[in-house]
Design a protein around this nucleic acid. Structure first.
Length: 683
DNA sequence: CTTTCTATAAACAGTT
DNA sequence: TAACTGTTTATAGAAA
């Protein structure tokens, strides 16, 4: 395995070196060159950055190990739950006649097969209780942020008024007023601090539960950037404004501690002590403040927020919005309408994906910010994330070689897989694994994804596939074809195909021997792949007609998924509403940065719609019928989504359609974010 | 139960 | 010679 990646870098290294010998400015162009060659590498990294990168890597490794441990725990729990029903997976011959399920053997720490990893990644199994808790936490935090914003605005108005009054009334009554102002100011600041703490805690808990991995780039102090990232930038700026302006006017006469506070807060998301000590309010209710977030201070309408699913007399359950006069009726409503059933479960799943997507987004933006700051302040070039064989996980898999293996594989800038990470499941598994998404036998059959065309799926979930080591739900043949068709010339060498795989899918960054063999095997086996002798050697092309011949076998997603969707497909509309609502009211306001234009969220929605839609079509055509007629989903998509406005080049289309003359080398679609080419060394 | 498709593993030969 | 590329065979699981 290491061997494999070693050889890979070797072959890549040669091309890089060619570039390197050409001049000193290579760094700024090497990326492009390399990419256009279809090479995947990050050798263009400056030697000065190695230390930094290694730090990052170590941090990530720690995070990953943590994650793996949790996943193992989860795995074990699941296995305990389903010991009986286990289909013994593959390679039973290696097992003694006892018929010990292979998975039991895999419970051994540090030993996780790729299949298991993948399965773990895809399962997303949570107990409803956990889901509830997580979602509540999340929503509570968001509510708090909103509250704080509102509160802050009010306070700022008040402040302005008072300042004006002061100016008009002369300086006599200065003291009491100013003290009042200062007190309010402090209260506000303290709330912000508390919120930060809460967010930190929340993030930490997410991390612990495996929903979030530690971001690279903050090897030493993960907390600080995390907290910063969680604060809406607007809010932060406002805060800064007010503190600076206020202190500017005030410090002359008044030596209140607001200055210290503000500076400490702004510069480093302050430790809790300072705020608690300084703030008089904190001293009164400080003991509780950490765990019961500053509700007291928000006095008004606090009841309405005592439950994250209840606000403004409306049930906040995604897609519900039922009006509840008081909290009691809300509780009643909650218990009756949102009890634990398929529907709620499905909604939870959606919500979880929303949250995960948001977290992924957040991680990206933080990374981006980090890169920007790094670029502006330090000279460092933070060469982001050229997809690189991520040996971390695989080395963990290798258990023993892990410790020594990773350090030497230098420029891994691990892109962070944050999306589908399964937290530890615990408690009664009311939801059987089979009722959840993507659970299957360890060796899952990955035929082409039901109905969802490969190119659109890849395009839409590009980030996901790049970062999460999840096996793409397409056959090797489909993937190879996609790789070839994406290339400008519609032809690729074997090595270029390899590189496409590793570039596009984190999953293919390990076990190279296996999948490369499979790729070769597929190329040889399928008539649709034609080998063409070229000047430089041989390239592979696609015989589309042949490929289409082989097409009829395109069905089937995961049966469990479909079953699950089917049971809940009548709720598609609410789900969708929930998704949109979530994005509208929660996420978007938080992302005031460049990520606004980022299609990731929209893509999620689309992908999920497709998922639902595809599954439904499948079930409908399956004859299972059951009055599919008035599914809300069909109202939304009367016809199956062949439309695919996002990507014209589609499977079914003739090859000529696929030609994208404007397609610059095969990675212009990476624009979305991916690998910050921060390499511009302007010195 | 059979067939087909796919994944995986591996042997092997030719080429670089 | 070793690594890469390409072909072929065998086996097994999944799905139709």
């Amino acid at each position: 395995m290491m061997q494999e990646s070693g050889t890979e870098t070797k072959s890549n290294g040669s091309t890089i070196q060619n570039g390197a010998s050409s001049g000193n400015h290579l760094i700024e162009c090497s990326l492009r060159e390399v990419r256009s060659n279809g090479e995947t590498t990050s050798v263009e990294i400056g030697a000065a950055d190695l230390a930094h990168l290694q730090q990052q890597q170590q941090a990530l490794q720690v995070a990953r190990q943590l994650l793996l441990q949790q996943q193992q725990q989860q795995q074990q729990q699941q296995q305990q739950q389903q010991v009986s029903g286990l289909k013994s997976p593959k390679r039973n011959d290696k097992q003694p006649a006892l018929q010990v399920p292979v998975s039991v053997a895999m419970m051994t720490p540090q030993v996780i097969t790729p299949q298991q990893m993948q399965q773990i990644l895809q399962q997303q199994v949570l107990t409803p209780q956990q889901l509830q808790v997580l979602l509540q936490q999340q929503q509570a935090l968001m509510l708090q942020q909103q509250q704080l914003q509102e509160f802050y605005k009010k306070q700022q108005e008040q402040l302005q008024l008072q300042l004006l009054q002061q100016q008009h009334a002369g300086k006599q009554p200065k003291e009491p007023q100013q003290q009042q102002v200062a007190t309010q100011q402090l209260a506000f600041q303290q709330q912000l601090l508390q919120m930060q703490q809460l967010q930190q805690q929340h993030l930490l808990s997410l991390q612990r539960q495996g929903l979030l991995t530690i971001q690279p780039g903050q090897p030493t102090l993960p907390l600080q950037p995390l907290a910063q990232g969680m604060i809406p930038t607007e809010l932060q700026q406002l805060w800064k404004e007010v503190t600076s302006s206020h202190t500017a006017e005030e410090t002359a006469s008044n030596n209140h501690s607001s200055l210290d506070l503000s500076t400490t807060c702004v510069s480093s998301s302050a430790p809790s002590k300072t705020s608690l000590i300084i703030n008089p309010h904190a001293s009164t209710n400080g003991q509780l403040s950490v765990h019961t977030p500053k509700r007291e201070s928000l006095s008004h309408e606090e009841h309405s927020h005592s439950h994250p699913l209840y606000g403004h007399g409306v049930c906040k359950w995604p897609g519900c919005e039922a009006v509840c006069e008081d909290f009691q009726s809300f509780l009643k409503h909650l218990n009756s309408e949102h009890a634990l059933d398929d529907r709620s479960t499905a909604q939870c799943r959606v919500q979880m994906q929303v949250v995960q997507q948001l977290e992924l987004q957040l991680a990206k933006d933080k990374e981006r910010l980090q890169a920007m700051m790094t670029h502006l302040h330090v000279k460092s070039t933070e060469p982001k994330a050229t997809p690189q064989p991520l040996n971390l996980v695989s080395s963990v898999t290798l258990s023993k070689t892990a410790s020594e293996a990773s350090p030497q594989s230098l420029p891994h800038t691990p892109t962070t897989p944050t999306t589908p990470i399964t937290p530890v499941t615990q408690g009664p598994s009311v939801i059987t694994p089979t009722s959840m998404h993507n659970v299957g036998p360890i060796r899952r059959r990955y035929s082409d994804k039901y109905n969802v065309p490969i190119s659109s799926d890849i395009a839409q979930n590009q980030e996901f596939y790049k970062n999460a080591e999840v096996r793409p739900p397409f056959t090797y043949a489909s993937l190879i074809r996609q790789a070839i068709l994406e290339s400008p010339e519609k032809q690729l060498t074997l090595n270029e195909i390899y590189n496409w795989f590793t570039r596009m899918f984190a999953y293919f960054r390990r076990n190279a021997a296996t999948w490369k063999n499979a790729v070769r095997h597929n190329l040889s086996l399928h008539k649709c792949f034609v080998r063409v002798e070229n000047v430089k050697g041989a390239v592979w092309t696609v015989d589309e007609a042949e490929f289409q011949k082989r097409r009829p076998q395109k069905i089937s997603g995961n049966p469990s998924l479909i079953k699950n969707i089917q049971t809940s497909h009548t709720y598609c509309s609410p789900l969708n509403a929930a998704l949109q609502a979530s994005m509208a009211e929660n996420s978007i306001p938080l992302y005031t940065t460049a990520s606004m234009g980022n299609p990731a969220l929209g893509n999620l929605a689309i992908a999920m719609k497709e998922e639902l839609n595809g599954a439904m079509e499948h079930t409908n055509s399956n004859g299972s019928d059951s009055s599919p007629g008035r599914s809300p989903m069909q109202a939304m998509h009367p016809v199956h989504v062949k439309e695919e406005p996002l990507d014209p080049d589609e499977n079914e289309g003739p090859l000529s359609l696929v030609t994208t003359a404007n397609h610059s080398p095969d990675f212009d679609h990476d624009r979305d974010y991916e690998d910050e080419p921060v390499n511009e060394d302007i010195e």
